[in-house]
Amino acid sequence: MDFQKELDARGLNCPLPILKTKKSLADMDSGQVLKVVSTDCGSVKDMQAFAKQTGNELLSQSEEGGEYVFFMRKK
């Protein structure tokens, strides 16, 4: 998937992946896609909740080898 920015949130625990996602999105334009890589299994539910509450679209999420990859389109 195409993305304009990547956030490495590996090793960070709640609530840092969400806070850093928020910060990363702040510097982006509407419609651009952010890729987030996290190792915090709690971030799976939290990213969904973040997307739902902020209106940014969670395009996809996947898990591979203990890493969680999210693609989020800025509102």
Binding site: P15, L19, T54
Partner: peptide, 9 residues
């Protein structure tokens, strides 16, 4: 934690 997260939301 709650304050920073709520602000992010």
């Amino acid at each position: 934690i709650l304050a920073s997260t709520a602000a992010a939301l």
